[in-house]
């Protein structure tokens, strides 16, 4: 007889769970544009609100072209390319996943004023693709000014999906873009942070560079913002159930009967434990 015990209070738990996505091959892609500028942001965020001192870091690359721009995580790109490289050499290298890699790519198409978001999910989960309007941000300009990287920046604020955001943009760089989904200010966003300070993007590099802007040839699951965010909340509410969703046969067990001989073997039913994970999404 198996005794099943449950996790009760989440509050006292202090753990660092790996919620990283698996690396993917970058061998197959198509070019969707060409960049003229490459902006690099350092992203710092808190994944577990009970551990405010545990800060994750990533680098967000923003490639800006005349028709579109793409924002993606450099960490994710780096371990995807290490994985691809080793595979090319015949080795089956699986670089250690970084749980702090930010799993969202955003492609903004200026003409249509629409952006396409590509969201990766933990382990071997699906890659979602959904579209949204670009003008989701109702910025209010303030009179506050600050200098960032030698540029004079003006502060603007807005409420977006459960957070109060403050962004500093500079009129000296006439690009209406920013990291992740941010856009719609009359100059490049140099720094944007949430009111609680649990999400911060800060520009650390500006380059004039011609680069191919690529879209990788993965199997994307077309969906909507609402579906995807509900899915991610569920995934974090019970990682155990999420895992079984991704790999249904793993861990589920049944009374097994040999088809021909009829011999019955029993395997215990897997644990039905609810395994919550800390989740502090950028959109709430």
């Amino acid at each position: 007889m198996k005794i099943k015990l449950f996790i009760t209070a989440l509050l006292l738990l202090i753990f660092n769970i790996m919620m990283a996505q698996s690396p993917l091959s970058i061998d197959d892609y198509k070019q969707i544009g060409e960049s003229q500028y490459v902006i690099v942001y350092e992203m710092s965020y808190v994944n577990d609100t009970s551990k405010l001192d545990k800060i994750y870091h990533d680098e967000i690359i923003l490639e800006i072209g005349s028709e579109l721009s793409k924002s993606y995580s450099y960490k994710t790109y780096r371990y995807d390319s290490t994985y691809t490289d080793s595979n090319r050499k015949g080795a089956h290298n699986y670089p250690s996943p970084k749980s702090s890699a930010f799993p969202v790519d955003v492609v903004k198409k200026y003409k249509d004023k629409k952006m396409t978001i590509y969201q990766r999910t933990p382990s071997d989960g699906p890659i979602f693709e959904y579209e949204e309007n670009m003008n989701l941000f109702d910025w209010k300009l303030t009179s506050e000014m600050k200098e960032i990287l030698g540029f004079a920046c003006i502060k603007a604020t807005c409420d977006f999906r459960g957070r109060n955001w403050a962004a500093w943009f500079t009129m000296d760089i006439p690009l209406q873009d920013g990291p992740w989904k941010f856009n719609g200010l009359p100059g490049l966003i140099m720094r944007v942070e949430s009111e609680k300070g649990d999400y911060v993007f800060e520009c650390i590099k500006i380059k004039n560079e011609k680069r191919q802007i690529l879209l990788y040839d993965y199997f994307y699951d077309k969906s909507t913002y609402e579906e995807v965010s509900a899915f991610l909340i569920e995934c974090h509410n019970d990682f155990n159930a999420y895992n079984r969703r991704i790999d249904p046969k793993g861990g589920l067990s049944i009374a097994k009967r040999d088809e021909v001989t009829g011999k019955v073997t029993f395997r215990d039913v897997g644990p039905n434990e609810i395994v919550p994970k800390p989740y502090n999404p950028i959109e709430m």
Binding site: I14, F15, I17, V40, H57, L149, K205, I206, N208
Partner: peptide, 29 residues
């Protein structure tokens, strides 16, 4: 006309972690 931006770069903080093993504090469980 093409606009050339003033290039600038700052050394980023330590972004690349070393330790990927998941550790559970036994007392917490």
């Amino acid at each position: 006309e093409p606009i050339v931006l003033q290039e600038v770069s700052v050394k980023s903080e330590k972004v690349w972690e070393n330790n990927d093993t998941i550790s559970y504090l036994a007392d917490a469980f």
